[in-house]
Protein backbone atom coordinates (compact mmCIF):
# COMPACT_ATOMS: atom_id res chain seq x y z
CA UNK A 1 0.00 0.00 0.00
CA UNK A 2 1.49 3.28 -1.04
CA UNK A 3 0.20 6.19 0.99
CA UNK A 4 3.14 8.47 0.51
CA UNK A 5 4.07 9.82 -2.92
CA UNK A 6 7.01 7.98 -4.45
CA UNK A 7 10.21 9.95 -4.79
CA UNK A 8 11.18 10.36 -8.42
CA UNK A 9 13.97 12.12 -10.29
CA UNK A 10 13.61 15.87 -9.94
CA UNK A 11 14.94 18.44 -12.40
CA UNK A 12 14.29 22.04 -11.46
CA UNK A 13 15.89 25.39 -10.99
CA UNK A 14 17.43 25.61 -7.55
CA UNK A 15 16.17 28.22 -5.11
CA UNK A 16 18.92 29.48 -2.78
CA UNK A 17 18.28 30.38 0.84
CA UNK A 18 21.86 30.99 1.97
CA UNK A 19 21.17 30.86 5.71
CA UNK A 20 22.58 28.68 8.45
CA UNK A 21 20.39 27.22 11.24
CA UNK A 22 17.02 27.89 9.61
CA UNK A 23 14.60 26.79 12.35
CA UNK A 24 11.16 25.30 11.85
CA UNK A 25 9.56 28.43 13.37
CA UNK A 26 11.07 30.31 10.45
CA UNK A 27 9.81 27.71 7.97
CA UNK A 28 6.29 27.89 9.41
CA UNK A 29 5.49 30.13 12.40
CA UNK A 30 3.42 28.73 15.28
CA UNK A 31 0.52 31.07 14.48
CA UNK A 32 -0.21 28.91 11.43
CA UNK A 33 -0.29 25.58 13.25
CA UNK A 34 -3.88 25.50 14.41
CA UNK A 35 -5.15 23.49 11.45
CA UNK A 36 -6.06 19.82 11.91
CA UNK A 37 -5.18 19.07 8.29
CA UNK A 38 -1.87 18.42 6.54
CA UNK A 39 -2.81 20.82 3.76
CA UNK A 40 -2.74 24.55 3.37
CA UNK A 41 0.63 25.37 4.93
CA UNK A 42 2.42 26.03 1.65
CA UNK A 43 1.07 29.56 1.31
CA UNK A 44 2.82 30.53 4.55
CA UNK A 45 6.16 28.82 4.12
CA UNK A 46 8.94 31.21 5.22
CA UNK A 47 6.20 33.75 6.02
CA UNK A 48 8.40 36.13 8.01
CA UNK A 49 11.23 36.11 5.50
CA UNK A 50 8.79 36.75 2.68
CA UNK A 51 7.09 39.59 4.50
CA UNK A 52 10.32 41.30 5.46
CA UNK A 53 12.23 41.00 2.22
CA UNK A 54 10.66 41.63 -1.21
CA UNK A 55 13.71 40.01 -2.77
CA UNK A 56 13.40 36.77 -0.82
CA UNK A 57 13.47 34.18 -3.64
CA UNK A 58 9.93 32.89 -3.01
CA UNK A 59 8.71 36.44 -3.72
CA UNK A 60 10.50 36.51 -7.07
CA UNK A 61 8.60 35.38 -10.15
CA UNK A 62 11.76 33.93 -11.73
CA UNK A 63 11.70 31.23 -9.07
CA UNK A 64 8.13 30.13 -9.76
CA UNK A 65 7.95 26.38 -10.07
CA UNK A 66 11.26 25.75 -8.32
CA UNK A 67 11.09 22.45 -6.47
CA UNK A 68 14.67 22.24 -5.21
CA UNK A 69 15.63 24.35 -2.23
CA UNK A 70 19.29 24.89 -1.42
CA UNK A 71 20.39 26.14 1.96
CA UNK A 72 23.32 26.15 4.38
CA UNK A 73 23.81 23.95 7.48
CA UNK A 74 21.57 22.65 10.29
CA UNK A 75 18.39 23.31 8.32
CA UNK A 76 15.16 22.51 10.21
CA UNK A 77 16.44 22.91 13.76
CA UNK A 78 14.15 23.67 16.68
CA UNK A 79 10.56 22.52 16.98
CA UNK A 80 9.54 19.00 15.92
CA UNK A 81 6.55 20.33 13.98
CA UNK A 82 6.03 18.21 10.87
CA UNK A 83 4.07 21.20 9.61
CA UNK A 84 7.45 22.57 8.49
CA UNK A 85 7.75 19.68 6.05
CA UNK A 86 4.11 20.02 4.98
CA UNK A 87 4.71 23.74 4.37
CA UNK A 88 7.67 22.97 2.09
CA UNK A 89 5.92 20.17 0.18
CA UNK A 90 2.77 22.29 0.06
CA UNK A 91 4.80 25.03 -1.62
CA UNK A 92 5.99 22.52 -4.21
CA UNK A 93 9.42 21.60 -2.88
CA UNK A 94 10.52 18.02 -3.46
CA UNK A 95 14.20 18.26 -2.57
CA UNK A 96 16.27 20.25 -0.08
CA UNK A 97 20.04 20.35 -0.54
CA UNK A 98 22.13 21.49 2.45
CA UNK A 99 25.37 20.97 4.34
CA UNK A 100 23.48 19.33 7.19
CA UNK A 101 20.01 18.94 8.68
CA UNK A 102 18.61 18.68 12.18
CA UNK A 103 17.60 15.17 13.28
CA UNK A 104 13.85 15.48 13.78
CA UNK A 105 13.36 17.44 10.58
CA UNK A 106 15.35 14.80 8.71
CA UNK A 107 13.08 12.05 10.02
CA UNK A 108 9.92 14.01 9.31
CA UNK A 109 10.96 14.70 5.72
CA UNK A 110 11.54 11.03 5.00
CA UNK A 111 7.93 10.35 6.01
CA UNK A 112 6.59 12.85 3.47
CA UNK A 113 8.58 12.20 0.30
CA UNK A 114 10.68 15.31 0.82
CA UNK A 115 14.17 14.24 -0.20
CA UNK A 116 16.97 15.77 1.88
CA UNK A 117 20.38 15.72 0.26
CA UNK A 118 23.63 16.46 2.06
CA UNK A 119 26.51 17.60 -0.14
CA UNK A 120 30.01 18.77 0.67
CA UNK A 121 30.24 22.34 1.97
CA UNK A 122 32.05 23.70 -1.05
CA UNK A 123 29.55 22.20 -3.49
CA UNK A 124 26.62 23.63 -1.54
CA UNK A 125 28.33 27.02 -1.41
CA UNK A 126 28.83 26.89 -5.15
CA UNK A 127 25.19 26.05 -5.83
CA UNK A 128 24.03 28.79 -3.43
CA UNK A 129 26.14 31.26 -5.36
CA UNK A 130 25.27 30.06 -8.87
CA UNK A 131 21.54 29.75 -8.27
CA UNK A 132 20.99 33.41 -7.38
CA UNK A 133 19.62 34.35 -10.80
CA UNK A 134 17.00 31.64 -11.01
CA UNK A 135 18.59 30.07 -14.05
CA UNK A 136 20.50 27.23 -12.44
CA UNK A 137 18.89 23.91 -13.18
CA UNK A 138 19.84 20.91 -11.09
CA UNK A 139 18.84 17.26 -11.34
CA UNK A 140 18.53 15.14 -8.22
CA UNK A 141 18.15 11.38 -8.57
CA UNK A 142 17.68 9.19 -5.51
CA UNK A 143 18.01 5.91 -7.41
CA UNK A 144 21.60 6.69 -8.41
CA UNK A 145 22.13 9.03 -5.43
CA UNK A 146 23.44 11.82 -7.61
CA UNK A 147 23.06 15.55 -8.02
CA UNK A 148 23.88 16.79 -11.52
CA UNK A 149 24.78 20.45 -12.03
CA UNK A 150 24.07 22.41 -15.24
CA UNK A 151 27.65 21.97 -16.48
CA UNK A 152 27.30 18.21 -16.25
CA UNK A 153 29.33 17.71 -13.09
CA UNK A 154 27.77 15.00 -10.99
CA UNK A 155 28.03 14.56 -7.21
CA UNK A 156 27.18 11.42 -5.26
CA UNK A 157 25.30 11.80 -1.99
CA UNK A 158 24.94 9.28 0.80
CA UNK A 159 21.55 7.85 1.61
CA UNK A 160 20.38 5.14 3.96
CA UNK A 161 19.50 2.13 1.78
CA UNK A 162 16.48 1.15 3.83
CA UNK A 163 15.04 4.66 3.63
CA UNK A 164 15.85 4.83 -0.04
CA UNK A 165 13.84 1.69 -0.69
CA UNK A 166 10.90 3.14 1.26
CA UNK A 167 11.03 6.49 -0.50
CA UNK A 168 11.33 5.11 -4.01
CA UNK A 169 8.35 2.86 -3.37
CA UNK A 170 6.18 5.19 -1.28
CA UNK A 171 6.26 2.87 1.75
CA UNK A 172 5.62 4.14 5.25
CA UNK A 173 6.89 2.70 8.52
CA UNK A 174 3.58 1.36 9.79
CA UNK A 175 3.42 -1.60 7.43
CA UNK A 176 7.01 -2.56 8.13
CA UNK A 177 6.52 -2.36 11.90
CA UNK A 178 3.26 -4.28 11.67
CA UNK A 179 5.02 -7.06 9.79
CA UNK A 180 6.82 -7.63 13.11
CA UNK A 181 3.66 -7.82 15.21
CA UNK A 182 4.58 -11.21 16.65
CA UNK A 183 7.98 -9.91 17.77
CA UNK A 184 6.34 -6.87 19.31
CA UNK A 185 3.86 -9.00 21.20
CA UNK A 186 6.60 -11.26 22.47
CA UNK A 187 8.63 -8.24 23.54
CA UNK A 188 5.72 -6.68 25.42
CA UNK A 189 4.92 -9.98 27.16
CA UNK A 190 8.46 -10.24 28.38
CA UNK A 191 8.57 -6.59 29.39
CA UNK A 192 5.32 -6.79 31.36
CA UNK A 193 6.93 -7.97 34.60
CA UNK A 194 8.98 -4.79 34.72
CA UNK A 195 6.21 -2.46 33.78
CA UNK A 196 5.56 0.04 36.52
CA UNK A 197 3.53 2.62 34.62
CA UNK A 198 0.05 2.83 33.24
CA UNK A 199 -1.77 6.01 32.28
CA UNK A 200 -5.10 4.41 33.13
CA UNK A 201 -7.04 6.48 35.63
CA UNK A 202 -5.18 9.66 34.79
Amino acid sequence: MSLIPKVTTVTSKAMPVPMKDVDTDLIIPAQFLTSISKDGYGANVFRRLRDNDPNFPINRKEFDGASILVTDSNFGCGSSREHAVWALTGAGFKVVIAKSFSDIFYNNSAKNALLLVVLEDKVVDEILQSAKNADYEVTVDLESQTVVLPDGRSYKFEYDQFRKHCMLNGLDDIEYIRSHTADIQEFRNRQEKQRYMSTRGA
Partner: peptide, 21 residues
Protein backbone atom coordinates in the same frame (compact mmCIF):
# COMPACT_ATOMS: atom_id res chain seq x y z
CA UNK B 1 12.65 10.89 25.83
CA UNK B 2 12.60 12.60 22.47
CA UNK B 3 10.42 14.66 20.18
CA UNK B 4 8.91 13.18 17.03
CA UNK B 5 6.84 14.47 14.15
CA UNK B 6 3.19 13.71 13.58
CA UNK B 7 3.85 10.74 11.28
CA UNK B 8 5.81 9.06 14.04
CA UNK B 9 3.06 9.93 16.52
CA UNK B 10 0.81 7.87 14.23
CA UNK B 11 3.35 5.03 14.11
CA UNK B 12 3.39 4.80 17.89
CA UNK B 13 -0.40 5.01 18.08
CA UNK B 14 -0.66 2.15 15.62
CA UNK B 15 2.11 -0.13 16.86
CA UNK B 16 3.61 1.10 20.15
CA UNK B 17 6.89 1.22 18.25
CA UNK B 18 9.05 3.36 15.99
CA UNK B 19 11.67 2.58 13.40
CA UNK B 20 14.85 4.04 14.83
CA UNK B 21 18.58 4.02 14.42
Amino acid sequence: AFGVGTSEVAHVMATGCLLQK
